[in-house]
């Protein structure tokens, strides 16, 4: 067990005061996560700290924050692994601050929605007990990107999002590739029109920060480069739209 100092960013637009850091001493075990420490502070030292969390197991993506300078999930970051006696928690960068560590995801989700993150296929209305057949290699083309939990860490780490409000960000672009390359999706041209823009996929400079911070191994930078390659005509012939089959009994 060791004692660590947790510095928590405090800002409440309602009280009109400047942002500040409050400091709290907490005892941490080897298994104590930053979220555990923050919830201990909230329960025993200052209940007014605002933060968002839910599952505590890196599945919901709610507790993203900048911990010691890097966007991380608080529930997925152990105090010990940070190797420091001082832990600074800030709200995710590139997201407007609602209060303290809670940030507003409205713009982030709007960008995600603008990618039409669902299968577009006219045949879906005529499924009638049939199903799309996909080979394992077709599934592997998009499976990795479908593990995204929309935690916003990649968006917070991206240097392009930091300066370009119109850039969709790594999460949205990786999701675009996820649906584009899915053999059940037929809206290839419509999808490409959305991102083939100077504030779109071409704005990415492959800094790779998104993939470094992703807690689920989604590798958004890979998706974005593959999306560009697709636009450049490097892999267009690799997509064959899946057909509907009736399962044999």
């Amino acid at each position: 067990m060791k004692r660590v100092k947790i510095r928590v960013f405090r800002y409440n637009p309602a009280d009109g005061a400047d942002a500040r850091y409050d400091e709290f001493e907490v005892e941490a075990e080897r298994w104590t996560t930053v979220l555990d420490a923050l919830l201990y502070i909230k329960a025993h030292k200052d209940h007014s700290i605002a933060l968002r969390y839910s599952c505590r197991m890196a599945s919901c993506g709610s507790c993203g924050m900048v911990i010691n300078g890097i966007p991380r999930l608080a529930c997925y970051t152990k105090v010990y692994e940070l190797g420091s006696d001082v832990i600074t928690c800030r709200p995710l960068t590139n997201f407007p601050i609602i209060r303290d560590l809670a940030t507003d995801f409205t713009a982030f989700f709007a960008k995600h929605k603008s990618m039409r993150p669902y299968i577009i296929n006219d045949a879906v209305d005529r499924i009638d007990g049939r199903e799309f057949l996909q080979k394992p290699e077709e599934v592997e083309k998009y499976l990795q990107f479908s593990y995204c939990i929309k935690c916003g860490l990649c968006y917070a780490a991206c240097p392009t999002v930091a300066t370009d409000k119109r850039f969709p960000g790594p999460q949205a672009l990786a999701q675009m590739y996820r649906y584009l390359i899915d053999s059940r999706d037929m809206a290839t041209d419509e999808r490409l029109k959305v991102v083939d823009d100077r504030h779109g996929v071409w704005r990415c400079h492959f800094a790779g920060s998104c993939s470094m911070v992703c807690p689920k191994g989604v590798d958004p930078a890979l998706g974005i480069q593959l999306l560009r390659a697709y636009l450049l005509g490097m892999s267009r012939d690799s997509k064959v739209v899946a057909e509907l089959y009736r399962r044999e009994k």
């Binding site: 592997e140 998009y142 990795q144 993939s211 470094m212 992703c214 191994g217 930078a221």
Partner: peptide, 14 residues
């Protein structure tokens, strides 16, 4: 290439 991510995750693009 995209694949099935396995912990500890290492981005192939990097």
């Amino acid at each position: 290439r995209p694949g099935r991510p396995e912990y500890p995750y290492k981005p192939t693009s990097l």
